[in-house]
């Protein structure tokens, strides 16, 4: 029997860099060219099989709460990894990557580590590129972060980036085993009939 690993992955980055587009391309293989600030997108789940293990990824979008730096601590809870997205045609969005990393560390605690992946998006607009690929890659290497350039429009490299992230989470979790700490999501309960106080 295959084992199942559940990972929560959070998606971050400045507005309009294509977080939701990447997510939808990766999970649903759909892409819309028209930009719409994130609404209605909550999180999407995707199951992948790797080396005889089934991985269930729950990838959380920001729900637009990043717009005024108002992401709640709640968003970062229990995340296994984070993906920071920037737009290769906007240097401002690359500059803010380090702010996002700071923000993540602030919420999860500066002493805690978590696997991170930086994605330079909009590779399909390579001719308009302003962020130097080598420079970005080197910056990420220096910070111990994985780096990929992708296109949410064509889907280029997305699959590969996520697969390698999952592998990195796996390695990280083996090196930093977490205590099993079961918790519950609320479930709807059917009302009991003929309730008697002396049950049990």
């Amino acid at each position: 029997m295959k084992s199942v690993e559940n990972f929560k992955i959070i998606l971050l980055g400045s507005q309009a860099v294509g977080k939701t587009s990447l997510l939808e391309k990766y999970v649903k293989n759909t892409f819309t060219i028209k930009y719409k600030a994130t609404i209605g997108v909550d999180f999407l789940s995707k199951c992948i099989d790797l080396d005889n293990t089934k991985y269930s990824l729950q990838i959380w979008d920001t729900a637009g709460q990043e717009a005024f730096q108002s992401l709640s601590t709640h968003f970062y809870r229990g995340s296994d990894a984070c993906v920071i997205v920037f737009d290769i045609t906007s240097s401002k969005t690359f500059d803010s990557v380090s702010n996002w990393i700071d923000e993540i560390q602030f919420h999860i605690g500066y002493d805690r580590k978590i696997p991170m992946l930086v994605i330079g998006n909009k590779l399909d607009l390579n001719e308009k590129r302003v962020v130097n690929s080598q420079k970005a890659k080197q910056w990420c290497e220096e910070h111990g972060i994985m780096y990929y350039e992708c296109s949410a429009m064509t889907g280029q490299n997305i699959e590969e980036a996520f697969i390698n992230l999952v592998k990195a989470i796996d390695v990280f979790n083996k090196e930093n085993p977490r205590q099993f700490n079961p918790s519950f999501h609320l479930k709807r309960q059917n009302p009991k009939k003929n309730m008697c106080l002396c049950k049990n």
Partner: peptide, 25 residues
């Protein structure tokens, strides 16, 4: 888990998912 304020935060996220704008700073 993580404290009682996760309850209001959960409802804020729901509001944000349905187009609510948040400025908490």
């Amino acid at each position: 888990m993580y404290g009682s304020s996760d309850i209001p935060q959960g409802f804020c996220r729901m509001c944000a998912v349905y187009e609510g704008t948040y400025v908490i700073t």
